[in-house]
Nucleic acid binder design. Structure first.
Lengths: 252, 252
DNA sequence: ACATAGCATTTCGTATACCAGACACGCAGC
DNA sequence: GCTGCGTGTCTGGTATACGAAATGCTATGT
């Protein structure tokens, strides 16, 4: 009989102020949905310092991290601004995502257990129940969750890390509702086909389907994502943007 | 006659101490070839502070960046260590690289001009002249340069950024010489085929070739990259490692 | 009224001082 | 000889103070 394994927690490590601030700010930035409001959003170190109850030092280090992730932009002696990605950047990110996820899907076809693949069906069903028209937020989250699940099955940490960073910025197109031309339904069918290919262990096919699925989104944004660049113009009045949205702008 | 354009430099922006330190340290870490020496390499904030002539603050911020890039590891109240990637991590990185580059190659087939593709031949030729056995360093650099060139042709900045970060860590396997089983020659043939596919604008084929080429490297490391994990054990004496290298260890 | 020079303010960048955890060493007790 | 405890030192984490650049305001002169 082997001796009982003693596994202990790493204790805290990582609970430093810097990391706490980093997580908080990241979450806050993601939640605040900058893409709903035109005009630049500016952060103030001192204000944050008072707000979070820590000195500027850990805050600056956290902001340094967020800058590298592309969430904020530090302009010396000018201010710290939350970054808004351009349409082109978003499309490039989706393309990179497509590359990484299709590779992950190929790996998943080799490595995932049958049980693992079963969990995809669970996610798929819960996804199916969502009415995409209302609750875009939850629909989008569930969608991302599905993709994350597949990538997890690849058992390649790097792919997870890299795509996670990309997914963060996908909040920009969350509003690209599926209403338009049955994108929701088609998307669902494609998800289903991918799972089936995985079940058949057809890595080649699964990879191709995953790539085409995500590249499809890229093309969709290419066609209907112009609003992303409008928002960059601070001159645009909020009302104008809202009107444009009401016109039934697409999305994901 | 149009008025003379007045274009001024952004002046300094980015010349902050933090960024300078960041670049210096990054360069230093990459150059020092940690994979040649077993045992952990530790950095000392105060020492660096004296060495570079700036205070600890910008140094810490630079180190924060390097940590996120995976070059160093900050252990609270323990020390700062240069990170050595494990064999598994290296392989995962190569896989991610394969994913991104194959996608880039597909894009290049659509977007690159004939002239652009011509430059690939230039790189290819200068690469061909290198004797891989001696001068592993330069051979490896030229190899990376070729891949970077292709990715550049995709005109997708994100792909460049992401792969650049991955390439940094490829220095770990630089020593995996090509001597073994004609890898150098085969690699060259594959490069040539990729360029030809690009010339024919066969994106599908170019993508596949690029992927298989790089995944081939991953498989190669899988077979011959065990030394990467040996190095992590500080107990291993340097002499032992060097002996192992002399045995004709593979690489890239 | 308007342009401008000077000053005050704001904001980030950097330096410095202090804090607390982790380790190493040495001594005491068994 | 081993174990446990305590102290001193080293190290990174945090707070605070200072500095310089950019901006905005105001007063002044025309």
């Amino acid at each position: 009989m082997p001796p009982p394994e003693l596994t202990v927690q790493p204790l805290d490590s990582g609970a430093t102020f810097r990391n706490q601030v980093y997580r908080r700010l990241k979450q806050a930035i993601i939640q605040m949905d900058i893409y709903d409001h035109p005009g630049d959003v500016r952060l103030d170190e001192r204000q944050l310092s008072g707000l979070l109850g820590v000195s500027r030092t850990p805050i600056r280090e956290a902001l340094t991290l967020l800058e590298q992730e592309g969430l904020v932009r530090l302009e010396p002696r000018r201010g710290i601004y939350i970054v808004r990605k351009t349409k082109t950047e978003i499309i490039e990110m989706i393309i990179a995502w497509a590359a990484l996820e299709s590779m992950a899907t190929r790996l998943a076809a080799e490595r995932a257990t049958a049980e693992d693949i079963g969990t995809l069906w669970d996610i798929f069903r819960s996804f199916e129940e969502q009415a995409p028209s209302d609750n875009i937020q939850e629909y989008s989250d569930a969608n991302i969750e599905f993709h994350k699940a597949i990538i997890r099955l690849s058992r390649a940490r790097i792919l997870e890390t890299l795509t996670d960073n990309l997914f963060i910025h996908m909040r920009a197109i969350r509003k690209l509702s599926i209403r338009q031309d049955n994108r929701a339904e088609q998307s669902m069918h494609e998800h289903r086909d991918i799972i089936r290919a995985l079940e058949r262990r057809d890595g080649e096919l699964a990879e191709r389907l995953a790539r085409e699925h995500t590249l499809g989104l890229a093309a969709h944004v290419e066609r209907h994502g112009d609003f992303l660049d409008w928002l960059r113009l601070a001159e645009v009045r909020s009302a104008d943007v809202k009107a444009a949205f009401k016109d039934g702008l697409p999305l994901m």
